[in-house]
Each structure stands twice: as structure tokens, then as C-alpha cells.
Design a protein around this nucleic acid. Sequence first.
DNA 1: TTCCATGTTCCGCA
DNA 2: TTGCGGAACATGGA
Length: 281
Amino acid sequence: MSGHQGGSGLKRRYTRLSMPELPEVEINRRYFDQHALGQRIVGVRVKDLRILGESREPALRRTMTGRRFVSTRRHGKHLFAEIEDRGWLRIHFGMTGDLFYYHGVKSPSRHPRVIIDFEQKAHLSYDDPRLFGVVELAASPESYIETRRLGPDPLDKAFDARSFSALFENRKGAVKALLMTQEIIAGLGNLYVDEMLFQTSVHPRKTASAITRPKRKAMYKSMRTILCDVIDQKLQGKSYPKRYLIPYRQGGERCPRCGGTIQRTVVFGRTTYFCGTHQRT
DNA sequence: TTCCATGTTCCGCA
DNA sequence: TTGCGGAACATGGA
């Protein structure tokens, strides 16, 4: 993972990040580190109980109040924050989750679901208009990952090209389905799966096990590059790098790589964009 | 008003 | 066991 400090992007607010996939969760993790770590928690307010997952509100309040967050971790699209001597808080951002740190009485954000109060009127708000996210207590990241059988994180140092390639063995389904399945690899979402297939000229419906070893290696490199570059670009407040598919997700557009036509279809139940010319079956 | 949405889970079926 | 399609969740924006 790119370990350097976030730039001006971490000072963003109060505009939303785009929908949360791995890069957005990583940016939120650094935002959490910068603003919430080490501060004493004086209160927890749950504005909508539907966001809580397995945890109950009194348990959440009791566990966190009077404590501090001492570290964070990210695995896939899950953010874990360690509560001193009390386990962990897990945040999943769903489709529309986001974090806002602010001072004062009134939340500047529009859909606060859980607000963590710190000393001196500082607050961290978890916002989520669509309520698909989850904020709950967890024993540890490891236990959660094991219980949910989550696959490796794409940016984990120990997750190398060989391990990535091994995921394709005996998989008869579409490569897009493989990459989207969190139990196989945890953290890739619709947008970035389409992007890495586009950049490596792989058709989203191609049978995973039929993809050659060299191609898998290229996909691995593309995956890491895309995720790291997007994190860096977004931290700098920039848009997507040149020749990315992402800005062309409307269909009928010209492919920025080969001039072909960008097609729209559905794979694994998700809207899928690809270039009909250079991404072959 | 209708359609769409970058996530996840569950169910039925092959 | 694997794989796939569809529905459901809840809300806002184009």
C-alpha cells in the first residue's frame, strides 16, 4: 500500500467523496486517522438504528464512551477502528456512506446516522443517505475476516501476483464475477473491476480459468496501479487519470484507447461498461 | 414520473 | 459445490 501522507484531499469537507469502493474507504481511513485517532470519546449518538448491524445502541455507547481510538485498519471495503481495550468498531460504507469531522453543535452533513462526540465539541459523523452501510462493534479485524470468509485485500503486501493468479484456477464463471466476489478477493467493486478489465483488454464475460498466466499477471499489476493511483489522485483533489474508462461510463462513447465504441451490458447483476473493440472474449 | 445507482444478502434453480 | 439470475434493502438525483 502507498504509505505516504495524504495531501490536501484530507482537508476536504464538506463535499462528499464519490461512492465508496476501496480507494474511498482508504481515504476515509486516513481521514479517520488524521481527525479522530487519540481523541477521548465523550458520547455516541445513533440517529438511525437501521445502520447498526449486529450491535445494539446501548452496547455501542457503553463500549466507546470514555475511550479513545488507537489505530485503524482497512480490509477490502471495511474500515476497522480499534477502541482502546474494547475491541474494534467496524464501518462498511455501503453505496453512500461517508465520514465528516466537524466542530460545533450542528452537523454540516445532510444524513448523519451515527455521530461520535469528542471533547471540545469535536464530532465525527458517519453519513449514509441510503442506509446500506453498517456501523457495529467487532472483536477484531481478523475474526471478522475469518467469520465472513473474506478474501485477501488487493493492496496487502503479502498478496502477490502468484496468489492472485491462483484465484483463477478452476473458476468456470465470468472473470468479472470472480473479481467482484468478496470471498475470493475483498475490496474490488464494479467500477474498478471494469477499469482493470478495460486496461488489460479482457472481456468481462471471459471464463476466469481460461485467462493465461501472463494476462493474469498483467491484471494484477493493473489492479494495484489503478487502486494506488486513484487514491493518490483523489487525495490531491484531481479527477481520474487520462485514458481511464471511468469517465466514459455512459455508453455509446468513443473508447479513449482505441476509438472503438463503449458498450453497456449486465454481468453478475451489475451494469458493465467495456470497449467492444479491444476487450475480446 | 420514471429510471438508475460504484454494495451486499438471500433464495431458487441448474 | 459452483454458478447464475432476480429480488430486496432505502434514498436521491438525472
